[in-house]
């Protein structure tokens, strides 16, 4: 695929890391047995049946992401990828270790878009834009571009419950990438879905952003997504950083483990 090669060519001089993850460990205390209701919790407490065990979601993860790099994080489901993502975006504080990143530059794009389907697309643009940190003036300014990119001219006053999934993901992508200045884009499984046409278009947009100095972090369990798009890959399995380096080598090792 030509898009992948283009990205590879754009790796600029690597100065200092945009994201620096050092010895990050994340431990959770989870109750044994499934305590989901207050009744079970109280009864368990009284009977002293609730014991906590420690779950190590991430164990000593260390890697840097340089400016202009496209780094892929690969691993099976439940391997700690999304926990890492939450830590990078600042939503979770790691148990130990440090993450250096400018949180204001991080744009996160996930499959769950957080749209309210009872509202119109326009209302959702403002709601989502506000949540991810844009001012009203800025959204006003970019509104036309968003509509154009998402190819939703004439649909913006309609409730989103009438939208197809393709329309929804286009709008989500358009909102997350509305800013032109260099930033850190985190894509959580989004490139594995959507129609071919949209994938091509969104890859072009990502490339554009990288040319403008942006950095991309792709989280996926799909080998092809990582191989086609990334300049570096990190493989995380059950919270342990198994391998870091060339996407091809990392993906091969990942595939061998799976077979």
């Amino acid at each position: 695929m030509s898009t992948g090669q283009n990205i590879e060519n754009t790796v600029v001089q690597q100065t200092e890391p945009v994201i620096s993850i050092k010895n990050v460990t994340m431990k959770f205390k989870i109750a044994t047995g499934n305590v989901s209701s207050l009744k079970e919790y109280i009864i368990g407490r009284i009977k002293k049946q609730i014991t906590h065990r420690e779950l190590v979601a991430l164990n000593d993860i260390t890697f840097d992401v340089m400016k202009g790099e496209v780094v892929g994080i690969i691993g099976t489901n439940g391997s700690g990828k999304s926990t890492l993502l939450k830590i990078v975006s600042g939503a979770l504080k790691p148990t130990s270790g440090t993450v250096k990143v400018d949180r204001n530059k991080v744009q996160l794009l996930t499959l769950g878009t957080g749209f309210d389907y009872e509202l119109t697309a326009k209302e959702n643009v403002y709601l989502n834009g506000a949540i991810i940190g844009f001012t009203k003036e800025y959204i006003d300014e970019k509104y036309e571009d968003i509509v154009k990119f998402a190819e939703l001219e004439g649909f913006m006053e309609e409730k989103m419950k009438n939208f197809s999934s393709g329309m929804v993901s286009r709008l989500g992508f358009a909102i997350a990438t509305m800013r032109e200045t260099p930033e850190i884009l985190i894509l959580d499984e989004v490139l594995s879905v959507g129609d071919e046409f949209f994938r091509k278009k969104s890859m072009e947009r990502i490339q554009q952003m990288i040319h403008g100095g942006s950095t991309v972090l792709i989280v996926s369990h799909s080998i092809s997504t990582i191989q086609q798009n990334c300049t570096k890959a990190v493989w995380i399995e059950k919270g342990i950083q198994r391998m870091t380096g060339e996407p091809k080598a990392v993906c091969e090792a990942y595939q061998n483990m799976r077979n």
Partner: peptide, 11 residues
């Protein structure tokens, strides 16, 4: 209710 937005919010 705002699960999906929690992780994205900058505030």
């Amino acid at each position: 209710d705002n699960k999906q937005l929690l992780i994205k919010v900058k505030l």
